[in-house]
Design a protein around this nucleic acid. Structure first.
Lengths: 225, 225
DNA sequence: TAAAAATAATAGTAATACTATCATTTTTGG
DNA sequence: CCAAAAATGATAGTATTACTATTATTTTTA
């Protein structure tokens, strides 16, 4: 028997639950492929519909607009990542080890998980790197926040922040450090591949270097006397 | 006599130099106001033209599209900031003091500088916080990079990275640390005001707290034995 | 098997992101 | 000062985007 991983999503994100039908799953699958390929700005519901073989109106029955779809995808990713963190740090007592594993998870290449056939986690990871911050860098961030659209991201930051606090209860900035780790795991990766002179990883271009940087950054800060 | 500060801009960013005419200066001034007010997504050349009292075609004579205009504005800001850094750290020998001043400059509210009447630096600072990363988070980042559109940002990171290396020549990640400081100065500010639970500054909401966090982050990393 | 729900097909609108043309005004070099 | 050049204004037009609406058809389900 196959375990089916289901991420519980905020119902206000969609008009009709895409997990509940074949068409819905196709919308998720193909939107990931298209955004990965052309970027979020060039992505339209018309192109998506053509790609799937349905009509524009068909997509609009599931998502109000493409920003909601982006919020759906990033939320899914953060939820999935929190699950992975829970799995990977389970039964490990030492918070330092847990934190190191979290950093590794955040900054490593993601492998596609066969349990969720309509979501290609590897592509989704790339999307979150390039487009993820556009989910909240909008003029309607306050409104979206009232809809609790950023809860998965906040929950993840909370989990990471708590581990940091466990490592050193006297460290004063566990939340800001958590967001710094998460954002920098992605930004350093983006810069390494696209604007390498902004990083110190230009030659090898390997995630292990980002991981080493983040470990150094975090542990020297929270371990300071 | 009044000193006129001029930032040298990459000429590929515009079709006609906006500094060279009244209309051009109006385009800069009003685009800053409009993007500040409505966000970059809602900003169009039509609305800008109406705001100024010219026509859409008039704006298109200066900028190819609104992304180029955003690149122009952010480039201007990074150039201006590098000048401020040069000014503020001039004649100071101790690199630690210089670095502390840089962090303060990066994370503090900006006051409008009367020397550049068509640029409201305070509003532009807000724009760079909310929209700045959209300048490079695009599918055409490689192409834009070939046009050297990110040079001002890279130069700034270079300057900050060099100060970090002066503080500790053995520190392994001066560039990545520089981008981390710059990005986090803005992101922590954005989160503090819009998604405060992601930070540790929710109650007071003051830049001094972001500055304290960044100082702690940077100096514990680079001063480690 | 009839009702309900979902989808497909088609059409239409307002706004966006441009390009083109030509007349008028402003600038500037001789 | 005047003519040529440059910049601006006014207007028009196109393809695409971001939707909404309607109706017919297919699929699901009670």
């Amino acid at each position: 028997m196959k375990l089916q991983l289901q991420i519980r999503m905020n119902e206000d994100l969609f008009l009709r639950n895409p997990e509940g039908s074949e068409l819905g799953k196709k919308i998720i699958k193909h939107s990931i492929q298209l955004i990965y390929k052309n970027g979020f700005e060039a992505f339209t519901f018309k192109k998506l519909a053509e790609d799937i073989g349905t009509t524009e109106a068909g997509v609009y029955r599931y998502f109000e607009n493409k920003h909601r779809l982006l919020l759906y995808l990033t939320s899914w990713y953060w939820g999935w990542l929190e699950f992975q963190i829970g799995f990977c740090t389970n039964n490990i007592k030492d918070p330092n080890t847990r934190l190191r594993r979290v950093i590794k998870l955040l900054a490593s290449k993601v492998e596609d998980d066969e349990d969720t056939s309509h979501v290609n986690e590897s592509l989704l990871h790339s999307i979150v790197i390039s487009e993820g911050s556009k989910a909240y860098l909008t003029n309607h961030v306050a409104e979206d926040n009232q809809h609790h659209f950023f809860k998965p991201y906040k929950d993840l930051c909370g989990v990471v922040g708590n581990i940091i606090s466990e490592c050193n209860p006297r460290y004063k900035y566990p939340r800001s450090m958590a967001t710094t780790i998460i954002e920098m795991a992605h930004f350093q990766n983006f810069f390494m591949h696209n604007l390498p002179s902004l990083t110190d990883f230009g030659k090898k271009k390997e995630e292990t270097e980002v991981i080493a940087f983040l470990n150094d950054l975090v542990f020297s800060s929270i371990k300071r006397v």
